[in-house]
Computed example of a mutant assay.
Amino acid sequence: MKCLLKNVFVVFFSIVFLSNCVSKKKIIYFQNDEIDQAKVSNSYKTIIKPDDLLQISITAINTAAVAPFNITAGVGSLGVGSSQLDYLVDTNGEIDFPVLGKLKVGGLSRDELIQFLKNKLAPDYVLNPNINIRISNYKVTVLGDVKGPGSYPVPNERITILEAIALAGDLNLTAIRNNILVQREENGQKIQYRVDLLSKNIFTSPVYYLQQNDVVYVEPNYASIQSASANSNVTFYLSIVSLFALLINQLSR
């Protein structure tokens, strides 16, 4: 009976150990496929979308001419300083711009919007205006089986999916690496992409460069899901094993 009891514990802990073993082929990034350099592009365009907060700054030699187009929050409580107000892109892709009124900006790239505003301002309002545009609420979200899930601001408005995962502390060992989900809004619709981090083809993916408000979701593997379920009942299982061991010990006397 004592030998049987020993065998029970050996089998039990062997199952636990083997269930946590993971092949390195499922862990190491970029191990499959060759990179098609013809498809690799380092170009990236920020596309203006609904819910973006735009900081638009206009300068020119004639400062008085541009003053009506640079709306600020005014003088602070201490009598100094001011902050520039952001323009919210509404659900129709429009902003309410001083003097010019409603402007359709959704779907335009940053360069396209700058040229659009220049055409609106010059030469009737401002001669040779310089325009700077920034999205102040640019962020991406990483969820699922990563070390630090959450939303992360991107000050420079340019980030790859690898950099976003790095911000989240990288994937856990239990994460599925060949089926990463990226959800993006395009033309008012939610579009989903699947990414394989085990393949070098990630560098040619349309979601290699993320856009503002993209959501990256990392699935846990089957063993992790089962482990989470088992952990919730670990006390129960240990009680059963202890009871079983006690019965065997009593019978062996």
Rank of each mutant, 00 (worst) to 15 (best):
K2G: 13
L5E: 14
F9Y: 15
V10I: 15
I15C: 03
V16C: 05
S19C: 06
K24S: 10
I28M: 06
I35V: 12
D36K: 10
D36H: 02
A38R: 13
K39T: 03
K45H: 12
T46S: 09
I47M: 08
Q55C: 08
T59H: 12
T63P: 02
A64H: 04
V66H: 01
A67Q: 14
P68R: 11
N70W: 07
N70K: 08
I71V: 15
V75M: 12
G79E: 07
G79T: 07
D86N: 13
L88V: 10
E94H: 11
E94S: 09
L100Q: 06
L103V: 02
L103Q: 13
K104E: 07
L108D: 01
L113D: 00
L113S: 04
Q115P: 00
F116Y: 12
L117V: 07
K120H: 06
K120S: 09
N130F: 11
N132W: 05
N132F: 12
N132K: 04
R134S: 11
S136Q: 11
S136R: 14
N137D: 14
V142E: 02
G144A: 03
D145Q: 12
V146K: 02
Y152D: 06
E157L: 01
I159T: 07
I161C: 01
L167N: 04
A168H: 00
D170N: 09
D170V: 00
A175M: 06
I176T: 07
V182S: 00
Q183N: 13
R184K: 07
N187I: 03
Q192V: 09
Q192D: 15
N201I: 04
S205I: 12
Y208P: 12
Y209F: 15
D214R: 01
V218D: 01
S224F: 15
S224P: 00
Q226C: 06
Q226S: 06
S227M: 14
S227V: 06
S229E: 13
A230V: 00
A230H: 01
S232A: 13
N233M: 03
N233S: 13
V234R: 11
Y237R: 04
V241R: 00
V241M: 05
F244M: 11
A245N: 10
I248R: 03
Q250Y: 13
Q250P: 07
L251N: 14
S252M: 09
